[in-house]
């Protein structure tokens, strides 16, 4: 019974193979992906979305490997999307997060998908928000997305998660590093992992002080200490607290609305950019040659091109 001529949606809820193939189609993009997402869209909005970000090696995958069984113990089904970078040279990727999830490897209540960034600027694959929509439509209670956070990426994760957990470890440097990287602004929960290391307490108290100095925020992010392999209780409690806070008034709806707006803006910009790059290909080369020959500066060439392709 398809509406508006849409082909019937594959059985995302009942058939894991169909879900996995749907994810691949969404990753590939194009008309087929959009048809699928249009059909899935009205089933989304039920899952709680948690984003984990932070520098490589902070222990995000290991935390998840312990957190997921905890959520399962509460009777929740969990979808995990683990993002790793693609090589800009070969397009290849080594996706290794799954191998830390051994405790959930045989659990049918957990669905893990490794996603390569496939050249998306900023590191978060272009398709990730849409992949989360599919898993949401498939009926998982909790969705966890894990990504290395550098530069623009964090903005992306803030747009698609209800709660952003920034994971740091004593090795990732002191609090000033975290402040520089802009990680503190997007954190709803700050997790100091590898808390058994000697410098962990210092890092945690430094972060507490930064938040205290940081002025009024509607939600003051808690700083929690975890040992990814065994003790993630404080993180679970902090997630619960943030969920309760979001549940008051229209906070969750408002946050999701803003996230969607940001997603829409990004997709729009990237489509326009793709289109322009295609159209401007030859002219770009010509301008680059003129810049190289010393005729004009890069800035002037860019401004000239922008004006030319404005229409």
């Amino acid at each position: 019974m398809s509406e508006a001529g849409l082909p019937p949606l594959p059985d995302l809820e009942g058939d894991r193979g169909a879900l996995a193939r749907a994810v691949s189609r969404v990753e590939a993009g194009g008309d087929e992906a959009r048809t699928l997402l249009d059909a899935a869209w009205k089933k989304t909005g039920r899952a709680r979305r948690i984003g984990l970000t932070g520098p490589p090696g902070a222990g995000k995958s290991t935390l998840l490997a312990t957190l997921v069984p905890l959520l399962r113990g509460e009777g929740k089904t969990v979808g995990v999307v683990a993002v790793d970078p693609s090589s800009p040279y070969t397009g290849g990727a080594l996706l290794g997060d799954r191998h830390r999830m051994a405790r959930s490897a045989a659990d049918d209540g957990v669905f893990v998908r490794s996603v390569a960034s496939r050249g998306a600027a900023g590191g978060l694959a272009r398709a990730v928000p849409a992949v989360l929509d599919l898993l949401d439509a498939a009926g998982f209670d909790v969705l966890c997305v894990e990504t290395v956070g550098v530069g623009q990426t964090e903005m992306d994760i803030a747009a698609l998660a209800d709660t952003v957990v920034v994971v740091l470890s004593p090795e990732s440097g002191d609090g000033v590093q975290a402040m520089k990287a802009g990680l503190l602004e997007i954190a709803d929960v700050l997790c100091v992992n590898k808390a058994d290391r000697p410098d962990a307490a210092t890092l945690a108290s430094e972060l507490e002080q930064m938040f205290d100095r940081g002025g009024e925020r509607a939600w003051r992010p808690p700083v929690v200490c975890t040992e990814g392999r065994r003790e993630v209780g404080p993180l679970r409690e902090a997630l619960e607290a943030h969920a309760a806070w979001l549940g008051q008034d229209d906070r969750l709806q408002e946050r999701r609305r803003r996230g969607l707006e940001q997603r829409l803006q990004r997709l729009f910009v990237s489509r326009v950019a793709d289109h322009l790059l295609e159209r401007a290909g030859e002219r770009l080369k010509a301008e680059a040659a003129e810049v190289a020959a010393g005729g004009i500066s890069v800035e002037t060439a860019a401004a000239r091109l922008a004006k030319e392709f404005e229409a």
Partner: peptide, 18 residues
């Protein structure tokens, strides 16, 4: 990976079902 494939590495001691 260097040949441009997306390689999902699951590590040691996997069962057939996993």
């Amino acid at each position: 990976r260097d040949a441009g494939m997306e390689v999902i590495y699951t590590g040691l001691r996997q069962t057939a079902e996993q």
